[in-house]
Design a protein around this nucleic acid. Sequence first.
DNA 1: GTCAAAATCACCCGAAAGTATGACTGAATT
DNA 2: AATTCAGTCATACTTTCGGGTGATTTTGAC
Lengths: 138, 138
Amino acid sequence: MKNIILRFGILAILLLILLELGKYSLLYSDWEQEFIIVLSALGLVAFGFILKGHFSSRKDLLQNHKIPHPEKLELLKISPREYDVLIKIAEGYSNQEIADQLFVSENTIKTHVSNLLGKLNAKRRTEAVKQGKAYGIL
Amino acid sequence: MKNIILRFGILAILLLILLELGKYSLLYSDWEQEFIIVLSALGLVAFGFILKGHFSSRKDLLQNHKIPHPEKLELLKISPREYDVLIKIAEGYSNQEIADQLFVSENTIKTHVSNLLGKLNAKRRTEAVKQGKAYGIL
DNA sequence: GTCAAAATCACCCGAAAGTATGACTGAATT
DNA sequence: AATTCAGTCATACTTTCGGGTGATTTTGAC
């Protein structure tokens, strides 16, 4: 969350610079003026994308699993997101790969994995997969 | 193999010491004599156990797998021992745990794992498990 | 007895995984 | 308003994995 603020700050500063340049470009050719305007527009578009990405409902990010046994997941107190991660683990992906696929940081995945190991009585991710099958949720 | 020689050496020396003590104990009481004799016997028994453990056929150590698809293992060029390890991986054990269960060193397990990853086109042990199932050998 | 494959082990090193702790947010509940 | 929970992220630290290399020993077949 500090990153997002930082990015916003940088983007805002860039936009301000562009706008300032736009002002001064009035003194110059039409070509330079339009160039600045286009850049500003692009900056605003990028701004919009980041805003959308970070403030849109998180449910958009959840994978489309037909969860096999919701009642079992509830018993094990495994959250939907954790289940997402469990599936990726079973598919043999590394933490970093899972992070990329779910659009979150590796640290977040590590947290999920750690929680999963606890909830599945496992010491390792391979054991977690085995337990997941044993519990009938994989 | 250096370890075994070392252990034999130590045991042999201990036995010699005990026997020497046995000789001199003739000068002392019957009780001490018997004590030495018992110790020597125990030493010989230990010797026997180590001998048996290290020189019995290695096939004793192989897991009793009814190998599901020998022809597939052959195609993948996966050796019996590697298959043992693969199964242990699928069961969620760490390299050290597998080493303890198969009575070999962790380094040996690492070698087997490394070979397995190559033969199963996997980058991680979790992926190896997935591939093993995909190939129908797990 | 020779040869090849299998199995064993060691050492080094970097990458990945996992632990522990603390913190912040958004959404739902009370 | 306060609480709870899921999800997110970070930092620091320890452990485990995995790659690369080289080596010895066993075993079985030829």
